[in-house]
Design a protein around this nucleic acid. Structure first.
Lengths: 174, 174
DNA sequence: GTTACTGCAAACGATTTGCAAGTGG
DNA sequence: CCACTTGCAAATCGTTTGCAGTAAC
């Protein structure tokens, strides 16, 4: 099994665990979409994803794509970007090096640069063939309030899951 | 004249120069919008801007707002963000300290942090009350192709402008 | 006077939603 | 079998566009 297949298995397992924990169903569509996303590196938008799945003869509706991408974002397997156009761009979260984005505000094209965590403003100005107007670090995560809410939710889920297990055990015992 | 008024004059002058160079008309709406944007710090969206201008009894249409913001973006007086919701956020470009954005992917709220140019991944993890999932540096600017096109365009404009001056002089001479 | 700009309303397009039919657990 | 998911089509909503009237130059 090559690196790509290994990664696919990894993320499939992670998605599986996520679905189980949240009591979401494990439909073929969901796994097919995840798999398909992890066959290509780089950015994609919903329309591209839709068409490329049709191309490999996997019929999905756009509604399902949007529904599934929501789950994938929530469990952190996919990352969402909005560079300035009207369409959102997505990208798989694992198997891509850390990279920053150079966005041309005139033509909208996006280039990627290698991890530049430590770039200073002075260094940025030196990026070849690109005139930097401004830049912004977008740090995505969970605020304390939502963090707390999520924790409570997970606790509730865990409790329900174990209760269900208990019930089953009771059944078997009786 | 306080600092705020001084800044407003500065950006008004810059906008004026931009409009002159590009042969765009100097309408009251355009200057009112720029002025209004520079009365508040922080992010705003189009709807908020629209309503707040109505509030101060300045009637503008949404179409004009979108048209004008385009110009302001082009001349770099306003900066555009898309944090992940459905609406674009804007921000004046001058008079704000350099800052990064903390975006809660659950509730969508956005906080600002002081300039963290040199934040390392390790440091990011330590941001209090915020669990960092991932971050991305968005570097906006102009690519070499567009840069060249813009330069040509400016040259053309400059030529036309001077030709026009020449014509006038000829007229006066004749 | 020309012609770009404004305001209005209609159009657009990415995303979302409601609902009937399908299917995982 | 129950109710979550899917697929379809219609609805939504921020943004763009066409057009007639207005005003900058």
């Amino acid at each position: 099994m090559d690196g790509s297949q290994k990664l696919k298995k990894q993320v499939r397992d992670e998605f599986m665990a996520y679905l189980t924990l949240h009591k979401h169903r494990k439909t073929p569509e969901r796994f097919a979409i995840l798999d398909h996303i992890y066959t290509t590196k780089g950015h994609f938008d919903m329309d591209t994803l839709y068409k490329s799945m049709i191309d490999v003869n996997f019929r999905v509706s756009r509604a399902t794509l949007y529904n599934t991408i929501e789950l994938l974002l929530d469990c952190g397997l996919v990352v969402k970007h909005q560079f300035g156009g009207n369409v959102s761009k997505y990208e798989r979260a694992y198997g891509n090096e850390n990279h920053d984005h150079l966005i041309c505000t005139t033509c909208g094209q996006v280039w990627e640069t290698k991890n530049s965590d430590l770039l200073t403003q002075a260094q940025l100005k030196k990026i070849k063939k690109f005139t930097v107007n401004y830049y912004s670090m977008y740090i995505y995560g969970t605020c304390s309030k939502c963090s707390h809410a999520k924790k409570m939710e997970l606790r509730r889920l865990a409790r329900n899951n174990s209760e269900k297990t208990d019930n089953k055990q009771v059944k078997y015992e009786s």
